[in-house]
Amino acid sequence: MKNFYEQFILGMILLIFSGIPLFSNAQTDQDALMMGHRNLCVAGMGGYTSWTNYWEGEFKRDNENIGRLSNTYGMLMLNYGVSKNLNILTSLPYVSTKASKGTLAGVQGLQDLGFYVKWRPLRRQLGKQKISVFGVGSLTTPSNDYNIDLQPMAIGLGGKVLSARIIFDVQRNKFFSTISAGYMHRSNVELDRPAYFTDRLINSYEVQMPDAGNFQLRTGYRGKKLIAEAFLVNMTTFGGFDIRKNDMPFVSNKMNSNSAGLEAKYYLNNALGFNATVAHTLSGRNIGQATGYSAGFLYTINLKSKTTQTATP
């Protein structure tokens, strides 16, 4: 018989996500899960975000020339366990944007190819508490020469991003808390025009991109078949400038946000799992106040034998 708490939490999650298909993040660069030795996880996912209000600097407003801006995406993700403490991951999303009003046409295409290395140097059992520390390094790079100069309709910011993240996780029985902090170094990007205006005129096609930091707090329940958590995410840009009054966003704007959400993973067996996520932007600067949903699946293959095995915390 399933554990009562697992049944109760799963029931609550199914109520929360009623009508929303299940989604999978697999094991990502942001969580405290590791793929087992010589296990390969193949994950497919889809998601939708939209907003009507946005922050122009610190001023919250809407824009009838855009109406509701929506972003639909799908992504393929692979995660391979080199060892129980070392994983390598890769991802490639396809993004489509659309505005409900105005003359701006939507854009669609493959976005940025990502490569990640996730290492767990410390895992200790202290009484009833299990403590783990992770380090993650990643590189994302545009998969093609997509247009970045039509914000907010563009599918991405272009440019390469080199990032490092540290994750600290504490689990007591089946309940856990995870804190992580990351730093993202962004390369300069190029426009298809010889000059542009930020807070001054710049006679160059090259744009200097500000670096950014990311902080996350996750807490919830982590069982053998079910993982359910709530999360808070802060994104802070180190530099950049505000959108000018009644102007379009620009690729090197300061883009800050605070968001919150819920996520659940449920494994049907040792191979197949599903995941669902919902998130909402609480506050921001030069970004839209978006609400997003994601859904998908993951399938784990144990390359050491004919059996399969899920990820382990």
Rank of each mutant, 00 (worst) to 15 (best):
Y146C: 03
Q111C: 14
P152T: 03
I166H: 01
L162Y: 12
G109K: 12
R186D: 03
T219C: 11
A212Q: 01
A195Y: 15
D192G: 10
L157Y: 14
D149C: 06
M184K: 11
S163Q: 04
G159T: 07
L191F: 15
P121T: 05
A105F: 06
G137E: 00
G137T: 07
I166N: 00
L157H: 07
L150H: 13
K128R: 14
A105H: 13
K128M: 12
P194E: 14
W119K: 09
F175Q: 12
G102W: 04
S138D: 08
K174M: 11
Y146G: 10
E206Y: 03
R200E: 13
S132C: 01
S180R: 01
M153V: 01
S138G: 14
A105L: 15
R200C: 05
G137I: 11
F115T: 04
L110P: 02
Q216D: 11
P142S: 08
P152H: 06
G102N: 01
Y196M: 14
V207C: 00
I202E: 09
I148V: 12
T219E: 08
L126N: 10
V117I: 15
R218D: 05
Y205S: 14
A212V: 00
G106A: 06
A212L: 05
N147Y: 12
K128C: 07
K128W: 13
S180Y: 02
L139A: 07
F168W: 08
Q208V: 06
Y116W: 12
V170A: 03
L139G: 02
V136C: 08
P194T: 08
N214K: 09
A164T: 09
S132Y: 02
G106Q: 08
S163P: 06
G182V: 10
G102I: 10
Q125A: 13
R218P: 02
M184E: 14
G213P: 03
G109R: 13
L150G: 02
Q111L: 12
D199I: 04
G102M: 00
G109L: 11
P121N: 13
N188C: 04
R218W: 03
Y146E: 06
R172K: 10
G102V: 06
S177E: 10
D211T: 06
D112T: 09
N188Q: 14
M184P: 04
G106K: 10
R124T: 13
G114S: 11
L126F: 14
Q111G: 04
T140H: 00
K130I: 11
R165Q: 06
R218F: 04
L157R: 08
G102A: 03
L113C: 05
K128Y: 12
I179R: 05
S180W: 03
M153C: 04
V136E: 03
N203D: 09
I131E: 07
M153D: 01
A154T: 15
A195D: 07
A164V: 15
G159M: 07
K118L: 08
A181R: 07
V189A: 12
S138W: 05
N188S: 15
R124E: 14
G159N: 08
G135W: 02
N173P: 05
